[in-house]
Nucleic acid binder design. Sequence first.
RNA 1: GGGCAGUUAGCUUAGCGGUAGAGCGCUACGUUGACAUCGUAGAGGUCACUGGUUCGAUCCCAGUACUGCCCACCA
Length: 882
Amino acid sequence: MLEKTFSHKEVEEKFRTQWKQSSMGHAHPTSGKKPYVIMMPPPNVTGNLHMGHVIDQSIPDALIRYQRLKGHDCLWLPGTDHASIAVHVLLERQMREEGKTRFDYGREEFLKRAWQWKEQCHSNITNQISRLGIVPDWSRERFTMDESLNRAVIKVFVDLYKKGKIYRAKRLVNWNPLQQSGLSDLEVVSVSTKGSLWHIRYPLTDGTQNIVIATTRPETMLGDTAIAVHPEDARYKHLIGKTVRIPLVGRDIPIIADDYIDRETGSGAMKVTPAHDYNDFALGERHKLPMISIMDLTAHINENAPEKYRGMERFEARKVIVADLEEQGFLEKIEPWTSNIPYDEKTLKVVIEPMLSDQWWCDQPYLAQEAIKAVEDGRIEFVPKSAENTYFAWLKNIQPWCISRQLWWGHQIPAWYGEDGEIFVASTEQEAQALADKHYGKKSTITRDNDVLDTWFSSALWPFSTLGWPDKTVDFDHYYPTTTLSFGADIIFFWVARMIMMGLEFTGKAPFKHVLMHGMVRDEKGQKMSKVKGNVIDPLIIVDEFGADALRFGLIASAPQGRDINIGPPQIEKFRNFLTKIWNAARYMEMNGCTHDKNFNPNTASDPVNRWIINETRKTNLLVQEAAETFRLNDMATTLYQFIWGTFCDWYLELTKPLLAQSSDTTKAETQKTLAWVFSHTLIMLTPLAPFITEELWANFKFSDKLLFEEQWPEFGTPSANDTAVAEIQWLVDVISTIRSLRAELHINPGDKIPLMMKDISPAVKERLDRQRPLIEKLARLSSIDVLTGATPKSSVTALVSDATIILPLEGIVDLKAETERLEKELAKIKDEVQKIDAKLSNEQFVSRAPQEIIEEYKERRQNMLVSESKFDQAFKRLKGV
RNA sequence: GGGCAGUUAGCUUAGCGGUAGAGCGCUACGUUGACAUCGUAGAGGUCACUGGUUCGAUCCCAGUACUGCCCACCA
């Protein structure tokens, strides 16, 4: 006997174990089935499960469950990402609490701690993913720093280096002074910040006059190497070529001319600090200016600056410099100014400093060419398609990628330096040594590059490194390229674009066919979840309260195509209620002895009610399938929601009540079997989205010896388009709804059974009525239904349904005035409609240009309206006693 | 500054040339033995605005206004 409600906790635990043990949870390259492959977007080994993970995991898990039912050999490969920077942020925070930095520990000790952290966090996050009912092939789990994945990374680095597509260069890089590491452009976000614009007087060396420049960063004046003005600026034209003396510094620098300068901004004259600003850097290169770096790696002023400022932190230096300028009369004015300040993307706390340094770069512009083509020519398709615009926009304007990080946790760069700095890139130290010895013509000493690679470098290889590449493996041969990639919109550049670039470059194939993008999970008001706002929803708390199914189903049902997902506990609760509804439907069936009969052939069902629901199930099956195949999982969810609640529970179950209680034994048996048949197929369709409850009910009804997890998708063929049962039950529903509506409107006591009469019915409809009389009586709470033969009773209520007129003879029961008003309203509505149609039909343009079938449609509608009008009109006159 | 989405009932949204559809919320009524985590019924929409194309526009085109996101960063 099923419990009163679904208790998700025990059930979830039970099936997590059973699924894990099922062989269907693993890929079988020799099965002969067609493969369907999804690589898990690897969660970082940093923290706890959040809502982003839930959507990240639920979508591919649903797709895999569906494709497995459809008979594919599914590979759903799980894994985790070492998340270089995120782990550094975490461990360094821990160390700071001890009053230390990673440099106090040293590389080896730091890495030891990192690995410990990884172990602990890895088991935490994978357990949490399992709690959602996610069932990937754990036997093939990977970690981005696994030995074999590391080999893939090394190979890619070495190969690209040999092709000249990875190189070392001294350039400006986004420097995080706290971490003392460079960052890629994608890891920097700019935040619009209110600040000041300082106008500073720079005196000409010859002392004849001053030139005023405006800057948001006065401290960088210590590294100025020019003043730039627009070549056509009348104010400054005569000064070009002269020199000015930097205040506080005393160094002389030239005034140069460049079109880049905007005459309207600031004072129209700009100081140029090539070592600390990207635009200045470009100017510096153009004009062959010296580049003076005035900060060390911790963003403190270095020895290139006047002694007074050395050792000051950059923002402290700013204050002191401004004060000095003011005191010495160099400060013209301070203007309030809003500018965009670059911060690190991970913590949003550290101001990023453009810093001149030696870094490794990857030639993304080269890799992008093929990546653009692969999407243009359809080898890869984005869903939704509009995401392709974003993809192209980025790739067509792509910059070299800074791939080195001055960190320890990650893939150490396979480059060694000779004593004179010569670079030797090789897969192993031995090879590098050999290269070096050959280069120097003698035994030499080499030192490995300390830096590691950007985390995303290894992620870019994920679709093939996980399958054993560069080794020749069965899995790689069989499962690459993968089928579908599902990912969150925030990592389209970080991850997706780079996987495509690397996949094409190293395997010659697009790493996946379909790229399915989902939006970000936000709270119910559409706001970003953040600790500061306090609107973060912990998915595990939701799972505890409402169950994993409700969370998964709710999230997928609420996720519009590629757009952000607004969801909060109230929405999840609603889907929990839906699952409860299903549970109760199951209890109803159990109470009514609906057991599975594997010999039941739905095509032999004879009762119209049963034939109808069988047909509806088939229609739903097609809709669900179509939605799943086109990645519209939200449609899949809502289609099932409507079918289960609106069709199966609201109508079919209600209609079976009289059938099970009153009908003949054969009809009763057929109905029991139909209920079980429909329900079993509903469970199969629903299981990709709500795996736990469906599995539990499947087991309870013993629909098969197997787990639902291992079942097959039902193939019904096309539902019958002209089954008379469909029209019959639609008519019945129409009749019942109309009567219920009248009862409510006329305030008839819900408990009262009332008589009903029908007229204007054809013999066929009469037959229908005779068949369905008991159901209509029961569901509309009628005492009797008669076909009206004589005159219509004077005090009665008239309503129209398809193929019949309904009369409720309610003398003395019903308020005649209320009924009069109701009829007046109906009549007015009809007249209004007829008038509109008439206007159309009397429009010559319309009649001559609109397609014939549309015109016919209007004419038919007009005819129907007129019939209705006359019937209501008669009823109205009768009521008035005319 | 550039790009991409979006603007439909109080909220979340579907529809995308020919009578506006759903869920939630709301209102009224309700113990008809699956379910009050529920049932029945109901109210609620000039489909952002302005033009254009069309016999006909929520739907196509152009522009405007907001909203969100992404990219670039005028010192």
